[in-house]
């Protein structure tokens, strides 16, 4: 008997899964991932190549006129721009000298060129309507990073103009986007040498600071730092108002609830599908599973019915016991 009950259960689970699948409950979306733009050919290819010859990799060679021979030297790591990364970035169509002085065409470069003022995002992007740079600028000025501006903090600290590429979030590449975006923060916050350039704070151990998070690695792979560390702004694609650490989200329920905060941040581009086949915040299910946020309305309803039914039967039973 035991055996046939077991068989029945297996059959039940299997039928349930197949029917869920057939009803499309767990559809997998197939959207094209970010297009590979490695094949991009710049109109300034030739001009840029004159810079990449030295700045494209860690070693460069130049002719020392005094000694009359070729010298091989190491390129200072902060001055290396990987060519393939550049030609995949958002700024790939520019010539190096669009932003840098044309005097760099001469070698050796004149010393005073180092002092040239650097452009900021807003210098070119002011007034744009796609990415709302003015809104970003406004948020940045209220963010905790802004107070470091005098120490040298700028947009570039997070968004290297040579390699930065905006990642269009889709359900397919979300994990990559999360890793890419988190790497931006960790670039300074887990590299004390860089961190020290801007602040006198002691070294922070990110993992220790976040050890209150259960399943820390799952959290860090599934959400971005900015989910908890920025002020949500409905009008910007990505919030830029980094809050001081004391104001970071620490209540589990902000995400682990029916009105999950994630729907206004990480999943905002796809959050039109608020419910998917009965799952609240269903879009999250394509990538992750969030306890408390992904409850299912049908299961809720069914469980209430069963629960009510049981109580009713008990009630009737009690009634007959008293009145028999």
């Amino acid at each position: 008997m035991k055996f046939s009950i077991f068989r029945f259960l297996i059959l039940l689970v299997f039928t349930l899964l197949v029917s869920l699948k057939a009803n499309g409950i767990f559809r997998v979306q197939s959207e094209s991932i970010n297009q590979d733009s490695a094949a991009f050919i710049s109109p300034y290819e030739e001009d840029n190549q004159r810079c990449f010859v030295c700045h494209g990799q860690s070693k460069y060679t130049y002719k020392n006129e005094t000694l009359g021979r070729d010298i091989k030297a190491l390129m200072f790591s902060e001055r290396i721009i990987r060519k393939d990364e550049y030609y995949q970035s958002n700024h790939k169509s520019f010539s190096c000298t669009d932003c840098h002085s044309s005097e760099y065409a001469n070698f050796p470069h004149a010393g005073e060129l180092r002092m040239e003022p650097r452009l900021n995002c807003i210098d070119c992007h002011g007034g744009d309507e796609t990415y709302h740079f003015d809104g970003i600028e406004e948020e940045y000025k209220q963010s905790t990073h802004f107070k470091l501006e005098e120490e040298g903090f700028s947009c570039w600290e997070c968004h290297d103009p040579h390699t930065y590429k905006i990642s269009k979030r889709t359900s397919q590449n979300l994990k990559e986007t999360i890793a890419y975006d988190n790497a931006i923060c960790l670039n300074c916050h887990s590299d004390f040498d860089r961190f020290e350039l801007l602040t006198d704070h002691e070294e922070i151990n990110i993992l220790k600071k976040h050890d209150w998070l259960p399943n820390q690695s799952a959290h860090m792979a599934s959400v971005r730092c900015i989910e908890c560390h920025t002020q949500i702004n409905e009008n910007l694609p990505v919030a830029h108002l980094i809050k001081p650490k004391t104001e970071a989200v620490k209540r589990c329920n902000e995400c682990h609830s029916q009105n999950s905060m994630l729907m206004a941040s990480l999943y905002k581009f796809e959050s039109k599908e608020k419910r998917k086949d009965g799952f609240f915040n269903g879009i999250i299910l394509n990538q992750s599973y969030v306890i408390g946020a992904n409850r299912n309305e049908y299961l809720n309803f069914m469980s209430l019915i069963i629960f009510g039914g049981i109580l009713a039967v008990i009630g009737i039973h009690v009634f007959f016991r008293i009145n028999k």
């Binding site: 589990c252 329920n253 902000e254 609830s257 905060m261 408390g292």
Partner: peptide, 14 residues
């Protein structure tokens, strides 16, 4: 499973 965002359904928080 059922706590809300603002107040907790049952006595303990998440």
């Amino acid at each position: 499973q059922y706590t809300g965002k603002k107040d907790y359904v049952l006595v303990v928080g998440f």
